[in-house]
Amino acid sequence: MERIRVLVAKPGLDGHDRGARVVARALRDAGMEVIYTGLRQTPEDIAEAAVQEDVQVVGLSILSGAHNTLVPRVLEQLRARGAGNVLFLVGGIIPEEDVEFLKSAGVHAVFGPGTSTDDIVEFIKSHVKG
């Protein structure tokens, strides 16, 4: 039986992971298998975990404002490992003006504060077959 597997990861120096946990639970409740790796992951760690866990979706949560540096690095590490084809999502505190840049870097969707978890679930389910 196929299940959607999602890596929820927090790169950088954020001090808490409440948002990431809320999303992880919502995805679990939608029937997905969520691999959660905790705070302060390097882009290499995240990409390596995505490969070993063979996920179809990678979701980054970034609150620190470092998204424009961190996101391309994670994508680069994923591509270096042949895993550049995952569905790649970013959430957290992302200013509207940065969304275009992130999308051009390879992010499929950006979910800012106030996003309903249903929208995230819906987006994943419409892009990945479980």
Partner: peptide, 22 residues
């Protein structure tokens, strides 16, 4: 464990397995 209700799961063991970075 898989949730008996949704069939989903949170797999969190990697959080405590961070000594092998790289």
């Amino acid at each position: 464990p898989t949730s008996p209700f949704s069939g989903g799961a949170i797999l969190g063991d990697r959080v405590r397995m961070q000594s092998h970075s790289g």
